[in-house]
Design a binder for these strands. Structure first.
Lengths: 136, 136
DNA sequence: TCATAATTTATATTCATTCTAATTAAAATG
DNA sequence: CATTTTAATTAGAATGAATATAAATTATGA
């Protein structure tokens, strides 16, 4: 993903092209790989490249990316830290209980013939499987 | 669940019968209902009954209960707080995105005919579905 | 170029949880 | 039953993640 692409990506999501946003978007989206990152990880990764961004800004930016639909916040995780997922398509996760690492499981890895109905007065908007794995 | 039962429950799980443990076990297990509770909720509930227990003790106790297999820690939740589940059997959850409330979904409400294989070098130890619902 | 509105930033603050060290209480022993 | 040992409780301090604040900076459009 070129500099121009990053600018287009931000612009097309109504996000101003600021230094922190460009750096973070490049870090997260440039190679098209799926990633599960914390704010601290992203801040450290930028710092290592000499692109220091204040931690508060990293939080702000990741949250704007979530609002813009560029990132997804993962709710299935070790308690106590927010994890952001670059894969915004519906999918599931392996959770390595030893390392805490999350790995994507494609949506179609699960096929079901029975699902619960939504409770009265509510609708189902998403479902997500967390598969806990243990190395042996 | 009588006082005697609570004592038996604790004793049979190698937990000393202390005031905080008896109070918490009674609060959580006496009526056999499934509950999803935070440490703060439990501390407040005891305080309202005149049975004050230090918050640190509530945390200690809930964590011992988890270790003893009397409670389960839920990993699918709003970021930032631990939720303890009195239902230790395999099951799933509705997550109300409006209120944050969790409701049990019985294990057999899902039937799959296709599940992902565990990655090399690991085994699947648990899987759990979180169904996000929205009131309408 | 200039004005203005959004963004960044350092710092302070909040909140959930754990740690510490002293006290208290439970079970085991004699 | 008294004593000893060991575990649990507790107040308060400490930690760590995330957000709020408010002043300085920067992007964008006129």
């Amino acid at each position: 993903m070129s500099d121009l692409d990053v600018h287009n990506l931000l612009a097309s999501h109504n996000l101003r092209c600021t230094r922190p946003r460009v750096k973070l978007a490049t870090l997260l989206f440039a190679d098209g790989r799926d990633r599960h990152v914390t704010a601290e990880w992203a801040a450290d990764a930028l710092a290592k490249e000499g692109d220091e961004v204040a931690l508060a800004t990293v939080y702000n930016t990741l949250n704007s990316f979530v609002e813009a639909g560029l990132l997804r916040q993962i709710s299935c995780q070790e308690a106590g830290r927010q994890v952001f997922d670059t894969n915004v398509e519906p999918h599931h996760h392996f959770y390595n209980e030893q390392t805490g690492e999350l790995t994507d499981v494609p949506q179609n890895a699960f096929r079901f013939y029975k699902m619960p109905a939504a409770p009265d007065g509510a609708e189902i908007v998403d479902w997500q499987v967390t598969v806990t794995i243990r190395p042996h």
